[in-house]
Design a protein around this nucleic acid. Structure first.
Lengths: 211, 211
DNA sequence: TTCTAACGAGACTAGCTGGTTTCGAAAGTG
DNA sequence: CACTTTCGAAACCAGCTAGTCTCGTTAGAA
């Protein structure tokens, strides 16, 4: 799709493409996006950092936009849905993994420039949301729903709100306040969700042991 | 500071500066930043939309960066600290006003591009945080602290976390998920904070009336 | 009325950059 | 070996824009 070679027409003639160049190009693109922003990405710089000629890039991607899209699309990562049997532990596992990702990774460094790009390109926004934000969100949703069934969370809770409360503060610190993204954040948010969305009870213990 | 005229030397000779041009320039700058992003701001466009010659801009600001900085600095707004006597009402007032601001205003439209710029310019980041985010945050902090004294909130709560939980979901939806920024969000977050950070009690009513 | 500086409009330049193309070399296939 | 396609490097161009400068004009102060 991003390739000029016609699909189906498997050419076996000529020098085959260097697959290492593929990775090198995408890696260089992501790193430069993180450093200078998607907008200040220079094709010459990508070529230089990837140790590749510009023609090698344009043979794979028709334009800069296509390159950026491909690089962003490559950010997808698998998220395993934890299932320890304890709602708190499951939530903590997901949130701590999130903290790990958004503290110091390329993904974190790219986010500010990505936010700007998303606000101006609906297609890219969809790609980012569905491509690599959706996994963790889906996992959290499953854990929350299990928490409801299990009786750890109230049945009428606004799941979308809960998801945004879990993820919002992290991104808020990453993008806006510059506050610390650490375990304390993960733990605090999880604890707040468990307490604030605890099921209605007639006599609730102050420190319930959520099973 | 952003003016070429030497401070102190109050010249009263010659044609005085048109003060309407000052506003027109800053307004045009903000609107164009909202539309196209800070990076794609064209000085010609600013001049055109403001109905002003480029020289008139450069007489006030040495460079595009200085213009952008000035426009952002002009975003400050006063936030009255509500004091109804009820913690819930005070929090709701602040959060609903925030919802009003970040739904459809110029400020909201500028944020994505501002986030990107902040990530690359520490001075601008400070300006934005202290200049126009700090007001509401300070007001919320006061309300939270009063809530603690009043016994509506637990004394050992992490105030920074609470502030980020109040603001985070809103910005998360604005910048990342594209979710709705409405009263339901404000109400839900406030309710969560009140429940989740409720003081430790021996017998807590499920629907406590926080006075 | 004279003087000064700001005004809107727009010409100008100096620099940068995305994209295309060309080059000789290299890497495979048959 | 002949053939085809990719490779890195670099030249090239067309387009765009920040910032400066020059007009003739205009608003106030002295």
């Amino acid at each position: 799709m991003t390739d000029k070679r016609e699909s189906g027409t498997q050419r076996s003639m000529g020098r085959p493409r260097d697959e290492r160049a593929d990775r090198a190009i995408l890696d260089a693109t992501l790193k430069l996006m993180a450093e200078n922003g998607a907008h200040d990405l220079r094709m010459d710089d990508v070529a230089g950092r990837a140790g590749v000629g510009k023609a090698t890039i344009y043979r794979r991607y028709r334009s800069k936009d296509e390159l950026i899209t491909a690089a962003v699309a490559g950010l997808v990562s698998e998220i395993a849905i934890p299932d320890t049997g304890w709602t708190r532990a499951d939530l903590l596992a997901l949130m701590r993994s999130a903290v790990g990702v958004y503290r110091g990774s390329v993904e974190a460094a790219v986010m500010p420039s990505l936010v700007e790009a998303m606000s101006r390109d609906a297609e890219l926004a969809r790609l980012v949301r569905e491509g690599f934000l959706a996994r963790r969100r889906a996992a959290l949703r499953v854990v929350l729903e299990r928490g409801i069934e299990r009786g750890d969370l109230r049945g009428d809770l606004d799941i979308e709100l809960a998801l945004d409360v879990l993820g919002g503060p992290l991104f808020y610190r990453l993008l806006v306040t510059g506050g610390p993204i650490d375990e304390q954040l993960a733990d605090g948010v999880v604890e707040l969700i468990l307490r604030g969305f605890a099921p209605k009870t007639k006599s609730s213990k102050s420190k319930q042991e959520t099973r």
